[in-house]
Structures are given as structure tokens and as C-alpha cells.
């Protein structure tokens, strides 16, 4: 494109063409979605198996979620190095997923701290709550977060549904709707089944959409290189 003057119609045509080109510059290879989908999927399913068949793998399986932060940091650094352009939508979506990550860890903090603090406040008031077991024995009652798996499911659905709507990406849209259905079901089920639903949510919300994104990404790349 040399610097020559051109007509008004040509100007409008050029503006439209450039906006279209920018619009199609968003490419996601799905690596992060596959990582988090597999980690949440494994943690949920293993935790369900532990609770359902009464065994313990020797450590809290949800710790693998914390461990997944390390590869995610490398993925993010690599992605930012390869990225030639940041779209407005991409910037907003990145912010939504960061806020979601912070909220998940805030919720984990709540689950771990609030029951103990509640026990202390109850004791400070001079009240003691005694739990009577089915066999007639008694023990002090300790508070615990009620149906915490349900809260996690509700939180998973928020960024997933937003991404699905904004990017018009149906696998994430329908997975998020399914996640809200899982949330409703989990309000009526035991912790074991809540964990099963959490694992399934990880697979449907991120793992499967991540694989679809990956296939699309490499398909497009192959088409460009041919």
C-alpha cells in the first residue's frame, strides 16, 4: 500500500476489510483449558472414588489443582511470547479468568478457615454443641461448609458461560448450562456425588472444549501452511 490518495468508497472498503482482518486474529490452542479440565476432572473423579469406595490415596487429591499453577505459568509466558496481537475481547476475557482464579482460591480459603473460626466463636459464647451418633455415642460438633461442591460448580459456570457467549463457542456455552444443572443436582446429593459432578464439570467445561479448540487451531494452522 503506497501513500496515494483514494476515494471515499475505497476508504470505507479498506476500513471494513481491516476490521474484519482484526476480528479473525483471535486464536486459542486450548492448552490451558485441557490442563485445568484434566486436573479438575481427575481430582473430582478420584475424590468421588475415595468417598464412594472408602479408601484414601495418601494425600489430598485436590492439591493437584494447586500444582497445576506451575505449568499454567509456563503456558501463559509462552503464549504471551508468541502473541502478536491482543484483541479487546481477549483482554477482557483474560481478566475474567484471572478474577475467576482469585475467586476459586478465595473460596478455598473460606472453606478452610470459616468452620474453625465458627467453632471458636461458638465456644467464646460459652455454647457447646454436642453431636449424637447413630450408635448413641456423643462427641463435640465441629462446623463444616455445607455442600461446598455446589458453590464450586456455580463458580465454574460463570467464566465458562461468559466465554461461550462472548466467543460464540457452543461447547463451552452448553457445558456451562450443564454445570448449572449439576449445581442444582448437587444441592440434593451427598459430598461423594458432589465430587463426581465436579469432576464431570471439569471434563465438560474445559477438557472437551479444550480438545475441540486444539483440533480447530491445528486444523487452521495446517490449512495456512499448505
Amino acid at each position: 500500500m503506497e501513500e496515494e490518495k483514494f476515494s471515499e468508497k475505497e476508504s470505507l472498503k479498506l476500513i471494513t476489510e481491516m476490521i474484519q482482518k482484526a476480528k479473525h486474529s483471535f486464536h486459542e490452542n486450548g492448552t490451558s483449558a485441557i490442563l485445568w479440565g484434566s486436573v479438575i476432572g481427575i481430582a473430582g473423579l478420584v475424590n468421588f472414588a475415595e468417598l464412594y469406595w472408602h479408601f484414601y490415596i495418601g494425600f489430598d487429591v485436590w492439591l493437584i489443582v494447586m500444582a497445576a499453577i506451575i505449568p499454567q505459568v509456563f503456558i501463559s509466558i509462552r503464549k504471551s511470547k508468541q502473541k502478536q496481537v491482543v484483541t479487546h475481547i481477549e483482554g477482557v476475557m483474560d481478566t475474567i479468568w484471572i478474577v475467576y482464579g482469585i475467586s476459586i482460591f478465595a473460596l478455598m480459603f473460606y472453606f478452610n478457615i470459616v468452620p474453625g473460626v465458627t467453632d471458636k466463636f461458638v465456644a467464646l459464647e460459652g455454647t457447646s454443641i454436642i453431636q449424637t451418633n447413630a450408635n448413641g455415642t456423643t462427641q463435640p460438633f465441629h462446623f463444616f461448609p455445607l455442600s461446598y461442591g455446589s458453590l464450586l460448580l456455580m463458580l465454574y459456570a460463570i467464566p465458562t458461560l461468559t466465554t461461550g457467549i462472548v466467543h460464540k463457542f457452543k461447547p463451552m456455552f452448553w457445558a456451562a448450562i450443564l454445570c448449572y444443572i449439576f449445581f442444582i443436582i448437587s444441592c440434593f446429593t451427598s459430598t461423594a456425588y458432589d465430587m463426581l459432578l465436579n469432576g464431570l464439570a471439569g471434563i465438560f467445561n474445559w477438557f472437551i472444549p479444550g480438545l475441540i479448540l486444539r483440533r480447530k487451531f491445528y486444523g487452521q494452522k495446517k490449512a495456512v501452511n499448505v
Partner: peptide
């Protein structure tokens, strides 16, 4: 703005948060 390449650059940048020189070069065929 009423010059093809400058208008192309501005139209492209209007649609994105930020872009690298190589990206602009590729999209504007310049």
C-alpha cells in the same frame, strides 16, 4: 488518515487492544 496505509493501520488498531509491528505488516501487506 486519508492515506491508505495509515487508514489501514488505524482501522486495525481500533479493533484490537494492541498489536505488534509484524502483525500490522502482515495484515496490511506492506
Amino acid at each position: 488518515l486519508h492515506a491508505p496505509l495509515r487508514l489501514a493501520v488505524i482501522s486495525l488498531l481500533l479493533s484490537v487492544k494492541e498489536a505488534e509491528f509484524t502483525f500490522i505488516k502482515e495484515k496490511t501487506n506492506s
